[in-house]
Amino acid sequence: MTSRGDIIEEERISRIEKGTGQDCHGGIETVICTSPSIVCLTQKLIAEMIGTYFIIFSGCGVVVVNILYGGKVTFPGICLTWGLIVMVMIYSVGHISGAHFNPAVTISFAVFRRFPWSQVPSYICAQLGGSLLASLTLRIMFNITPEAYFGTIPTDSNVRALVSEIIISFLLMFVISGVATDSRAIGELAGIAVGMTIMLNVFVAGPISGASMNPARSLGPAIVMGKYKGIWVYMVGPIIGIMAGGFVYNFIRFTDKPLRELTKSSSFLRSASPNNNASSSSNS
């Protein structure tokens, strides 16, 4: 005989299958959250947007404050702010979305089969959305003068800025691949390592290219402020550098594979040797 509890459970499952049941947290009745996978993707996108928003708001905001208020922050302070905000957001939402915050990083992970291609467009839209909202917030908050533009513009030639972006983006992705995708690394230190890499890159390339390393970081302010000078540098350079950094690390990741195979082969030969069998027989 079917109990009343079984009937209620069947009705609940039926509502979920139709898209009108409870969400995956057992909370509010909703039509949008029709499956745990959709809820999970939605949470990831929100995390990516929030993370990117605060990275752009803090990193670009400190540039504006430094210029508008007489250089009180200083260039080292700007570098430190970029590194700290990236580190903080990695530890805040990295366990939810993976803490990409960068379209080039998302594409690179997908190329190397560490992220599903089906989610790439959604991630990029979330990252660009966060950058646009942060840039719009800064424009509303401050009286942005031409000197206080918080986007990235090559200070010298486009070629020099492009080379700079490729090199520092390479280093960024190389470090990300090492600390965040390799199981042999200490995963708890990933945020610190990536944040410090950002800080060092801004120190080196900030005066040359603005040290973008991120198409969303450059595109958001450019759209909001209507300044597109040299914008192609920040679309092409980070993608090339990050793809190259990911490729090189994946190339050296498996350098110990022949050694492991040799060790396994030696262990198998020792276990199959006659002397070993005789020793086993005598022990038994």
Rank of each mutant, 00 (worst) to 15 (best):
Met1Tyr: 07
Thr2Lys: 14
Thr2Met: 13
Ser3Leu: 10
Ile7Cys: 05
Ile8Arg: 15
Ile8Asn: 13
Glu9Gly: 05
Glu10Arg: 14
Glu10Ala: 11
Glu11Ile: 06
Arg12Trp: 05
Ile13His: 09
Glu17Ile: 07
Gly19Leu: 06
Thr20Lys: 13
Gln22Cys: 06
Asp23Ser: 06
Cys24Tyr: 08
His25Phe: 12
Ile28Tyr: 08
Glu29Tyr: 09
Glu29Ala: 08
Thr30Val: 09
Thr30Tyr: 09
Cys33Glu: 10
Thr34His: 14
Ser37Val: 09
Val39Gly: 09
Cys40Glu: 12
Cys40His: 12
Lys44Cys: 12
Lys44Ala: 08
Leu45Asp: 07
Ile46Arg: 13
Ile46Leu: 14
Glu48Met: 09
Glu48Ala: 04
Glu48Leu: 05
Met49Gln: 02
Tyr53Thr: 10
Ile55Lys: 02
Ile55Ser: 00
Phe57Asn: 00
Gly61Thr: 02
Val63Lys: 00
Val64Gly: 01
Val65Asn: 00
Asn66Thr: 01
Ile67Lys: 01
Tyr69Leu: 08
Val73Asn: 02
Thr74Met: 00
Thr74Asp: 00
Pro76Tyr: 04
Pro76Glu: 10
Ile78Asp: 00
Val86Met: 09
Met87Ile: 03
Val88Gly: 04
Met89Phe: 06
Ser92Tyr: 06
Val93Leu: 11
Gly94Pro: 01
His95Asp: 14
His95Glu: 12
His95Gly: 14
Phe101Glu: 08
Phe101Asp: 05
Asn102Trp: 03
Asn102Ile: 05
Pro103Arg: 08
Thr106Glu: 10
Phe109Pro: 02
Phe109Tyr: 10
Phe115Lys: 08
Trp117Cys: 09
Pro121His: 07
Gln127Ala: 08
Gln127Ser: 07
Gln127Val: 03
Leu128Val: 05
Ser131Asp: 00
Thr137Lys: 02
Met141Leu: 15
Phe142Gln: 04
Phe142Met: 06
Pro146Tyr: 10
Glu147Thr: 08
Ala148Leu: 05
Phe150Trp: 07
Gly151Pro: 07
Thr155Gln: 15
Val159Lys: 07
Val159Arg: 10
Ala161Asp: 04
Phe170Trp: 12
Leu171Val: 11
Phe174His: 08
Ile176Tyr: 09
Gly178Cys: 12
Thr181Glu: 13
Thr181Met: 12
Thr181Arg: 07
Arg184His: 14
Leu189Met: 15
Gly191Arg: 06
Gly191Leu: 06
Val202Thr: 04
Val202Cys: 15
Gly206Tyr: 00
Ile208Thr: 13
Ser209Met: 08
Leu219Tyr: 03
Pro221Cys: 07
Ala222Tyr: 02
Ile223Ala: 09
Gly230Asp: 03
Tyr234Asn: 11
Val236Arg: 11
Gly241Pro: 08
Gly241Ile: 03
Ala244Met: 14
Tyr249Lys: 06
Asn250Phe: 04
Arg253Thr: 00
Arg253Phe: 05
Phe254Ala: 06
Thr255Leu: 15
Arg260His: 13
Glu261Arg: 11
Thr263Val: 07
Leu269Phe: 10
Ala272Cys: 11
Ala272Glu: 11
Asn276Ser: 13
Asn276Cys: 08
Ser279Asn: 13
Asn283Ser: 12
